[in-house]
Simulated scan of single mutants.
Amino acid sequence: MKLEHRKQKVAPLPQFLLRQARFGLFAFLLISISVGIGTLGYHHFANLVWLDGFHMACMILTGMGPVVEMTTEQAKLFSSFYALYSGVAFLSITAVFFAPIVHRLLHILHVEATTEKEN
Score class of each variant (00 low, 15 high):
32 S>V: 09
29 L>S: 07
119 N>A: 14
33 I>K: 00
78 F>C: 03
24 G>D: 04
119 N>F: 11
86 S>Y: 02
28 F>N: 11
14 P>I: 07
40 L>S: 07
70 M>G: 06
115 T>M: 15
63 G>V: 04
79 S>I: 10
47 N>K: 09
105 L>S: 10
68 V>Y: 15
96 V>Q: 05
13 L>C: 10
117 K>C: 12
98 F>P: 00
60 I>K: 01
119 N>D: 13
13 L>R: 02
54 F>W: 13
113 A>D: 11
76 K>I: 14
84 L>W: 14
72 T>R: 09
108 I>K: 05
114 T>D: 15
19 R>N: 03
101 I>V: 05
82 Y>L: 06
48 L>H: 05
94 T>G: 14
12 P>K: 10
107 H>K: 03
61 L>M: 14
80 S>F: 15
24 G>L: 10
116 E>W: 13
27 A>C: 05
60 I>M: 06
112 E>N: 14
30 L>C: 12
116 E>V: 15
52 D>C: 02
69 E>Y: 11
3 L>P: 00
81 F>I: 13
44 H>V: 10
105 L>W: 12
34 S>C: 04
112 E>C: 12
14 P>F: 05
72 T>V: 09
84 L>D: 14
74 Q>Y: 15
118 E>Y: 09
43 H>M: 11
91 L>E: 05
96 V>K: 00
75 A>E: 13
100 P>L: 00
109 L>K: 14
52 D>K: 08
104 R>F: 01
8 Q>S: 13
115 T>L: 15
86 S>K: 04
118 E>Q: 15
115 T>R: 13
45 F>A: 01
112 E>Q: 13
92 S>G: 11
41 G>W: 00
80 S>M: 15
70 M>N: 06
77 L>E: 12
25 L>D: 06
72 T>L: 08
35 V>I: 14
26 F>T: 12
119 N>S: 11
29 L>P: 05
10 V>C: 06
38 G>C: 05
108 I>F: 03
19 R>G: 04
54 F>A: 03
108 I>T: 07
37 I>C: 02
83 A>T: 15
3 L>D: 00
98 F>C: 01
67 V>I: 08
21 A>M: 10
95 A>L: 09
78 F>D: 03
12 P>A: 08
9 K>G: 10
51 L>K: 11
11 A>V: 12
85 Y>K: 08
40 L>M: 02
105 L>P: 02
24 G>A: 04
7 K>H: 14
39 T>Y: 07
37 I>M: 01
97 F>M: 00
90 F>T: 14
1 M>F: 13
76 K>H: 05
34 S>A: 08
71 T>Y: 02
80 S>K: 15
52 D>H: 11
82 Y>M: 07
33 I>Y: 07
104 R>S: 02
39 T>G: 02
43 H>D: 06
48 L>W: 00
102 V>K: 04
83 A>M: 13
